[in-house]
Design a protein around this nucleic acid. Structure first.
Lengths: 192, 192
DNA sequence: GTCTATAACTGGATAGAC
DNA sequence: GTCTATCCAGTTATAGAC
């Protein structure tokens, strides 16, 4: 059973995906979550607190759906797992759209709100490490710095492609193709 | 001589880079431009009008400084010109910071404001074509689709790296290194 | 075209009861 | 923990003089 806090955070993630961080109104959040504004302040102190916790919530959730595996599926090769993990972020499902949109908003907001930067940097780092580990599974002999660099490029590219998709500049299918090609190139680069 | 309207738009671009679209206050804009708030409403009707015109102004301007060349410099090889053009976007000068920040704001805003999408898509396409042409200079025998793909990946990566830099997640020098390596890899990929 | 002054409003945040 | 009611600061936008 979801606690009140969680319920509010879920509503915040939905609302941020719908209106953006900029468009998030505490009163509207209260309505969406079915609680009073005062309760939100009770739990999160202030607007920034809401944002910070939502960011945390979102990146935790993203890790879940990232690592979630269908138990019946045949075990994936490291290479397949890498590709699958990254392409998972470019899918038109409500959950992914919500996470990606919120992530993009938080990234953009952090440019002007130093309070958000630390959390954002930490989440990014976690994500980069995760992808670097997957790359290491594909290329066990590659040096750590090379894996880190490839991961940083792939995740930054993914963020860029994701924003182009969400802002209507790029078709989803094309974004996926571009990402796949980049993965192939990076894996190839690590092999030489 | 800059007209009053232009003067206001320049001030708006500066301010958006400093505070973001959401942080733009009409009163502050008036102070920055050295005019009254009433005059701004006289010229731009409302806050949205200011934003629309400013974003137009910014994307026009970005096209200019991209193509601008120092006449005294030694002629660059196609490869050098490619690298120079892309790295130009990752520099800590007021002008680049202003444009990149504003561009990021524009990109992020477009996710929620369909009105902005068309302009954004057009500007992106122009940029992608330009980089594809530079890549074509380096690899004259590469097929057009391959050039287009490489350009889309490099420019999307650049946007992603730029956001990480501006949001304090990535050091500028490291972002430049990552981009350089990606350029090398794409050029290499086109050569095989 | 441009200003000063101010009206009208939005939205974040809190007090105090339950 | 949770609500109702409300305050108050900050903002957009306009009226009217020059």
């Amino acid at each position: 059973m979801a606690s009140r806090s969680t319920q509010i955070l879920e509503a915040a993630a939905r609302l941020i995906a719908r209106r953006g961080v900029r468009g998030l109104r505490v009163e509207e959040l209260a309505a969406e979550a079915g609680v009073s504004t005062a309760l939100i302040y009770y739990h999160f102190k202030d607007r920034t607190g809401i944002l910070r916790k939502t960011l945390e919530f979102i990146s935790d959730r993203a890790e879940h759906y990232t690592t979630q595996v269908d138990p019946d599926a045949a075990p994936l090769s490291p290479r397949e797992e890498l590709e699958r993990t990254l392409l998972l972020e470019l899918q038109d499902t409500p959950e992914v759209r919500e996470n990606s949109t919120a992530w993009g908003e938080l990234r953009a907001s952090a440019v002007f709100e130093p309070d958000l930067r630390e959390d954002l940097a930490r989440s990014t780092l976690t994500w980069v490490h995760e992808v670097a580990a997957l790359l290491g599974g594909v290329r066990p002999t590659a040096p750590a710095v090379a894996l880190a660099g490839a991961s940083e490029r792939l995740t930054a590219l993914l963020e860029g492609l994701s924003m182009r998709w969400l802002s209507g500049t790029l078709q989803l299918a094309h974004a996926r193709t571009l990402l796949s090609e980049a993965i192939a190139a990076e894996v190839d680069g690590l092999g030489r």
